[in-house]
Write a protein that binds this DNA or RNA. Structure first.
Length: 426
RNA sequence: GGAGAGUUGGCCGAGUGGUCGAAGGCGCACGCUUGGAAAGCGUGUAAACCUCUAAAGGGUUUCAAGGGUUCGAAUCCCUUACUCUCCGCCA
């Protein structure tokens, strides 16, 4: 969430940012309201502190009086302290009320978009950051979408998944399963080469962790929830990995912290139906390698570009045609300050599929997480957090098998052959 | 799942009602010492919020979390979470 002092000091800027996100007409009144609540909170804090200071000092005197046998004087003071306590309780309740209201509003206010974020209402206004420089691949007559290829080669089945779990849980088989494992290892190896420390993290997380990255209270509808144990299934490894450093004060010399991890991701995707979600285009469970960085605020922009380069190199090596979009204000996710989406061209479906999202959250997550570092001034400051998919498997497999279909079978990109152990799915 | 023991600062660890934000040690920082280093000596070393400020300062809260008893709680009581040991179960 945004820091209240930032809103206080840069109200116009924040408002402009909200407008860029098409936040709606209530933006200004929300900001005014939250500042006013904070003013009240401060005033209340002051009176509460003064009152408690008085009580503390009286209590000390009571102790001394008792020791010197002056019971009566002490008892007189007791009643004052008792009265103070009532008032203090009132003030404390008031404080809690202010804090809750402030938090409630702050949870509604999305991150401030960076200048690089273009204006726009939705998907259609995203700006191409880097176009695919070559002609897009054109498949011959009879080219098939991946869900048909899956049947021809028996590499994955949604029907069996439906039997086992429900719609949207693909079962990979034979060379499909092997391809899946090959991609996971390839992506992890590449991430490690790029300096990301590999982590293995829990797939279920508690509420505090969900709040840290901003998935709660915002998107609980998107996450599977295990009621009996109060745990959420992770929608992305970003959640557990970034939270590793929740509530920590880092040393500047540790920056940048670069971590990666492979996990399955679970998404309810409630309300998604239709042709665009066929096959592997949108599923409830998919595998992903996530890269995460925690950085000094001065460096996050540069690191963001470096992450872009890393994801690009993966797609280059897999020989997949892709483009990079800068998400516009209307399409930017809640916690992000700047997001680039990678889209791979599916030649059989003749459309672009999102395979990676690389975001800089600046201090939005770290403020919730209390993820700080000690600056040169010896004071604590919020770090910047970034993450990106590198990469998400299901859609990569979809594009890979569609674009590489040949009469001899599905050709595996050269870089993956050492991982799969075969050159063709046939 | 059953029984028991525990949770104190960056770490270890003392502390059973007031003088405790907390002894001592380690670590870290700075200084002295040294040709340089080590050792030694000295000083300092939590976070958040409020207030004030050029800086300093002052106040409040925090000893796992939440609640209670009390004029006063790290210390007593209750609840929850977690850790460890033993038993049970188990890949």
């Amino acid at each position: 969430m945004l820091q209240i002092n930032f809103i206080r000091d840069h109200k116009d800027l924040v408002l402009a940012g909200l407008n860029k996100r098409n936040f709606g007409p209530e933006a200004e009144s929300l900001l005014t309201q939250v500042i006013e609540l904070d003013d009240n909170r401060k005033l209340t804090q002051k009176s509460l502190d003064d009152l408690l200071a008085e009580s503390n000092s009286l209590s000390k005197q009571i102790g001394i009086l008792y020791k010197s046998g002056k019971q009566e004087e002490a008892n007189l003071m007791k009643s004052t302290v008792a009265k103070n306590k009532e008032v203090a309780n009132n003030l404390q309740e008031k404080m809690a009320g202010y804090r809750n209201s402030i938090e409630e509003i702050l949870f509604k206010i999305p991150n401030h978009p960076k200048d690089a974020v273009p204006e726009g209402k939705g998907e259609e206004d995203n700006v191409v950051h880097r176009e695919w420089p070559n002609p897009l691949p054109v498949l011959g007559e009879g080219a098939k979408p991946h869900w048909e290829l899956a049947k021809d080669y028996d590499i994955f089945s949604l029907e069996i998944g439906t039997k086992l779990a429900g719609a949207g849980f693909p079962v990979f088989r034979k060379k499909g399963a092997r391809l899946q494992r090959a991609l996971i290892n390839f992506f992890l190896d590449e991430a490690e080469k790029a300096g990301y420390e590999e982590t293995v993290v829990p797939l279920l997380v508690n509420e505090a962790t969900g709040r840290g990255t901003g998935n709660l209270p915002d998107k609980e509808g998107q996450m599977y929830f295990v009621e009996k144990d109060d745990l959420y299934l992770i929608p992305t490894a970003e959640v557990p990995i970034t939270n590793i450093y929740r509530d920590d004060i880092l040393d500047m010399k540790d920056f940048p912290i670069k971590m990666c991890g492979y996990t399955p991701c679970f998404r309810r995707e409630a309300g998604s139906y239709g042709a665009h979600v066929r096959g592997l285009n949108r599923v409830h469970q998919f595998d992903k390698i996530e890269i995460v960085q925690i950085s000094h605020p001065d460096k996050s922009h540069e690191l963001h570009q470096e992450m872009l380069a890393h994801v690009s190199s993966l797609l280059d090596k897999l020989e997949l045609p892709y483009r990079i979009l800068t998400l516009c204000g209307g399409d930017l996710t809640f916690a992000s300050a700047l997001t680039y989406d990678f889209e791979v061209y599916s030649a059989a479906q003749k459309r672009w599929l999102e395979v990676s999202s690389v975001s800089n959250f600046e201090t939005y997550q770290s403020n919730r997480m209390k993820l700080r570092f000690r600056g040169e001034d010896k004071k604590t400051h919020l770090a910047h957090t970034l993450n990106g998919s590198a990469l998400a498997l299901a859609r990569i497999i979809a594009c890979l098998i569609e674009n590489n279909q040949t009469p001899q079978g599905i050709k595996i990109p050269a870089v993956l052959v050492p991982y799969t152990g075969f050159e063709y799915i046939d």
